[in-house]
Amino acid sequence: MDLLEQLGDTFLNWEEMAKVIPSLLMVGLPNTLVLAVASGILGSLLGLLLALMGISRNPAARWAARIYTDLFRGLPAILVILVIGIGLSPIAREITGSRNPYPLGILALTLIAGAYIGEIFRSGIQSVEKGQLEASRALGFSYGSSMRLVVVPQGIRRVLPALVNQFISLLKDSSLVFMLGLASSDREIFRIGNDAMANTGNLSPLVAAGILYLILTVPLTHFVNFIDNRLRTGRPEKKEPDELAAPIGKGAQA
């Protein structure tokens, strides 16, 4: 067998891929999405809280946010997932009554994502001009209302691209929960590809898993570019009726 054929068989064996595709789509995809979306939403809420603490006038809140962020940004994701997933599993079993590692997996991913998203939100909120807060306060809004109605919405809009990037990273990191041991129906995309690879000794199922990740992440990357562009240049402006009417009128006359 020549080398090319051998490589093709190792990575692009269609039969091996076809065998794994149904469970990739029916089991792996929903599980990966559950992990990424749940920890994405919870991580955003945690991040918003951390951002508001980080810019608070209360030094204790600022310090707490700082220490939290340093801690969870500074540790490898896999370490956090293992420590939380294994360390807290007796407690989780008592509360949920099941051995399903998802609640703890989501918790660990949320704690990590929150640290990153908190910094993203903080930079966005701090980039809003001081005059916005001042104008809102001058109208009679309290500090809290001003932040909620005026400053935070603008800050978040500015960091949407970074936020989507963080979600992409979360989507990939969700594969790390495989370390916690997953029942057959709980396996996510990576684990399904990995199991099939282990059983057959052929890498094609992992390649198929990789392609599925790309199908999820590449459109998101382009979506980031799209909103980034939109935020930079603004929505294409609608012409006013009289401006539009003029050329149309001329066209009709000609």
């Binding site: 916005q132 104008a135 306060r137 001058a138």
Partner: peptide, 19 residues
């Protein structure tokens, strides 16, 4: 906050809410 509802203010940089 209640005092400021009774005093309107206009700024050099307008400070309209762009969103």
């Amino acid at each position: 906050d209640e005092l400021r509802q009774r005093i309107g203010m206009v700024f050099q940089q307008f400070n309209l809410f762009p969103h």
